[in-house]
Design a binder for these strands. Structure first.
Lengths: 365, 365
DNA sequence: CTGTTAGCGCATTCAC
DNA sequence: GTGAATGCGCTAACAG
């Protein structure tokens, strides 16, 4: 009753006046089909909305698929780790498909290392790539070389201009920054009016695309709402954390009117730990990404709102769509923008309990 | 690499020294098995963590399952409609399983009608029931009669005391109320301090369990945080909406210090539309449930935060778990508490785009 | 080029 | 009470 009976390959064969084998050859673009048969089958396919049953396919599929996963280095519980967990979950769900997934990671704070890893990646053999991009230009070069070799790729976390991925899976970073600005303003109580923004220092002086977009959304909210808050950049080092406390001490010495801080990258815990240590509790804090460290700070009340980007789902969908594309050459939607999760101390536990899946795998290259 | 090769029924058969047919008889509790075989197989099952492949099972399954869905009346886009949509989505995903789902609905504001529908339900034939409960006592009676007949049931939206469902799928309504109280307080600006709570009038004067729990969470937040806000109940009628405007006029005439309103049931749009019509824009509003009407008010800025309870997912999981239970008699987790979504004007569109699935079915009984 | 056939994991039926 | 045989939708190898 709910949905009409799904049409099978056998039905299509009958309607087109050919055998099941021929239909299968066409669906999988496997050649050796006469023009006449192809046209007859494609005509039927257009009429009947054939949705191949991937579970049935995978059981009898013999081909092996090699996928490469390239992203910033990570450990479990970090943003990129969750993306990878999603990738593994997709592999688990489609366990009958014979696919191997090789992982290659680079230092996201060092453009030179990223370049190195990309060229290392080009020497390997695989059917498709999942890319977690940080550096725009380097990724563009990498992608154009993949295109030359005829290898399809998808992005997770961000899209990259001037590339042609099969699909990408990301949050809307602009809206994310816009939202974070709204949230910090709506919870800052009258009195101290200034807002701080954390800024990571990188080798190569390039900021991640996602952070740039968030900053732009942040600014636009201020302008659209004619807010007069003074904005202060707070520098910090992701690679040499021991330097941070000194820098923060200096900053807060000079800026006494900070009423709220927004962290537009996933390292919110850096400032949260500082505020906690110094027992500063009159500064509101809005951060992004459900890293283990950020979650800890959300739970103990230092972070007020934490924005989640569903990294696990991004990875899951990327692998799932990639497999569907490889197997069925199905047209997939290119832009896949996932919703933003707004989390508080009250909701984080339920969120994790429900989304967490235990993976005991080692996260090794 | 990701996960160890899944063990198949054939593997178990070999390990236990019996044939695949025998293993299947045991897995499906179908009898006609010697004690010796049963013990051998069960021993192996314990050791190897057999996860039957439901997709492979369903293809060769011949049995037909009849499911009954009982809930408050709804139209598309309302809370209960989304739950039903999730049920249909599960049926679509497991299309190979031969299952029919009959729908029966009652007036959630009229306990007598609910009773009638429950007794009508008891006269039908089915293998299991999905219940959306509103009235506690009546549901308890219904459930005890189901238990007598040996018919399993699951709840969506709420659990009900003194019943033994296979499982239930709901939000934590207590936390939901607690959270709504925190949100309204964090965004109310100094000045007007009082908070209003909307209260639906019902035939039978029984409030839904979910609303009672939310109220309790709401109160506890106030107490724990030693907040002095004065709380005002604002009565409204869900069944005779034309009476509301007069009641609200009267209420706001008498209470000038309302700075925020919380609606602990899904009818937030009732007060939102009123505030919009009267151009009152200095009252913050926090509501629950993503009904089409509530979403409209969120988008035009009348509602500040809207709490979502993932009704679609509740319905989906209820049907999915029920089928798994019926087919495999698998032990399912009884309490399934879904996370709460916090939505704002900025995030609602992404949320809907991503979660919406088009179902062209008619919502008829 | 194309139809036929075997086999994937599983539930079920049918001889033994 | 049990193993062997069949068929589900699909892919892949094979024989024409």
């Amino acid at each position: 009753m709910a949905t009409q009976k799904r049409v099978r390959i056998k039905d299509i064969a009958k309607l087109a006046g050919v055998s099941a084998g021929t239909v299968d050859r066409i669906v999988h673009n496997r050649g050796n089909v006469s023009k006449k048969s192809r046209e007859a089958v494609e005509k039927v396919l257009k009429e009947v909305n054939y949705r191949p049953n991937i579970h049935m396919s995978s059981i009898s599929l013999k081909k092996k698929y090699d996928i490469l996963f390239v992203s910033p280095k990570f450990v479990e519980g970090e943003y990129w780790g969750s993306i990878y967990t999603g990738v593994l979950r997709a592999l688990d769900e489609f366990e009958n498909i014979n696919v191997s997934c090789k992982k290659l990671t680079y230092n996201q704070y060092d453009v030179f290392n990223c370049k190195e890893v990309y060229s290392k990646a080009l020497k390997l053999e695989y059917d498709a790539v999942i890319i977690g991009p940080i550096f725009q230009k380097e990724t563009q070069v990498f992608c154009s070389q993949l295109t030359e070799k005829g290898i399809p790729y998808v992005f997770v976390d961000s899209d990259v201009d001037q590339t042609s991925p099969i699909a990408y899976f990301s949050a809307n970073h602009y809206i994310s920054g816009y939202l974070m600005c709204k949230l910090i303003n709506s919870i800052m109580k009258s009195g101290k009016k200034d807002i701080g923004i954390m800024q990571a220092m990188r080798v190569g002086n390039e900021s991640a695309n996602s952070t740039i977009l968030r900053k732009s959304g942040f600014q636009d909210y201020l302008v659209e709402n004619k807010l007069q808050s003074k904005i202060h950049k707070i520098p910090f080092s992701a690679t040499e954390p021991e330097k941070n406390e000194g820098m923060f001490d200096e900053f807060f010495e000079e800026n006494k009117d900070i009423g709220g801080i927004v962290v537009l990258n996933s390292r919110g815990n850096v400032i949260a730990n500082y505020l906690n240590k110094k027992k500063i509790d009159n500064i509101k804090l809005v951060c992004v990404d459900l890293t283990n460290e950020n979650i800890k700070s959300l739970k103990n009340g230092i972070i007020d709102f934490l924005i989640g980007q569903k990294p696990e789902r991004q990875g899951y969908l990327a692998m799932k769509f990639l497999l569907e594309h490889l197997i069925f050459k199905m047209p997939v939607m290119v832009a896949n923008i996932l919703p933003l999760d707004i989390l508080t101390k009250e909701t984080i536990d339920l969120y994790r309990e429900f989304n967490d899946l235990v993976y005991l795998d080692q996260y090794n290259d």
